[in-house]
Design a protein around this nucleic acid. Structure first.
Lengths: 168, 168
DNA sequence: TCTCTCTTTCACTTTCTTTTGAAAGTTCAA
DNA sequence: TTGAACTTTCAAAAGAAAGTGAAAGAGAGA
């Protein structure tokens, strides 16, 4: 396979993968493009490579920067801004985990805690079923939270070394 | 908080959580509803509780059954079909992990393997950058695959007992 | 201050997803 | 075999999300 072709396929695959998760397709494609490029690209480069508008480029690059997946790079003597992506996939994964935890898990933990105290007779089977469900989910969510925290803080070698052996 | 109110909030929260993941809102809401109900519900019950159409109900219930998260229940003497959800959240989580792995991770592993062999001079920095990226991602994806496989097979008691202690 | 280059914003368009509801299909007791 | 009870399908409508591009903004050097 030729390099250009392989790049295009990678960008497209990474893009549809992103779409299955909450991330939008363009954002994932820009990220993929920057990951396989050895040097930083400008907004114009990205527009040209992916055939997207200036506005769209700007919006999604900004969002990637918010996620901590892309950095602005200033090239001395140039007026334009350039962008690079983190190329270490382990760091990418922990950044994403951190961000998703903050956006998704933290709010649900908050809600679940509130839902714990429902009024009503504990002998009523509706009340009991509800409380049991919420309690189970709440416990699970807290455990998940702990695992993600460790993951986010962990070193690659330690994490895989330990976790994989554990699960065998 | 009253039970009805708490249920409504839980259904709505679970629904928007699902939407952030690839799962659609209605599907997540039906799942939430069935989780907090002690007894099986019919399609009509679901329609009434969530204010959705018959077609929508049918489609999403069927999809939940495909995911292995909901079961059809036949009540003796009744013509209608009834539905229940798995109430053990651990089982729900492993079902979801299994299904998402199959739909998302397995295809990407396949693509990555193909992208490994790009033609071109290994000294060219574009070729090198590309190969390095793909190799890193590929390695990561395979490790992730192993962890998920183990997770899917593991028992809750084992998980809580061993892994959680590890993370303190 | 002016102007040139680049960045950001935002109202509008396009595209993609979800929902609806009526019609067709299925099942089964009579 | 019929028809009542229920389920499934599907084309059209509504809704949500993403993308565009022109215009406004911002900053640097003349």
């Amino acid at each position: 396979m030729k390099l250009a072709e392989a790049k295009a396929q990678f960008i497209q695959t990474w893009g549809s993968l992103g779409a299955q998760w909450g991330i939008n397709r363009t954002m994932a494609q820009i990220h993929a493009l920057l990951m396989v490029m050895p040097d930083p690209l400008s907004a114009d480069d990205i527009m040209a490579e992916l055939n997207i508008s200036r506005g769209n480029t700007n919006m999604n690059v900004r969002e990637l920067i918010n996620w901590g997946l892309v950095d602005r790079v200033l090239i001395p003597g140039e007026r334009k801004e350039y962008f690079t992506a983190e190329k270490d996939i382990w760091k990418v994964a922990t950044e994403i985990a951190r961000e998703r935890k903050r956006r998704e898990l933290d709010p649900i933990l908050k809600t679940l805690n509130q839902l714990q105290d429902v009024e009503g007779d504990a002998k009523d089977k509706h009340v009991k079923a509800f409380k049991d469900s919420i309690q189970g989910i709440n416990k699970f969510a807290h455990q998940t939270d702990k695992v993600i925290n460790s993951f986010v803080k962990s070193e690659e070698s330690w994490f895989y070394g330990t976790l994989i052996k554990l699960f065998k």
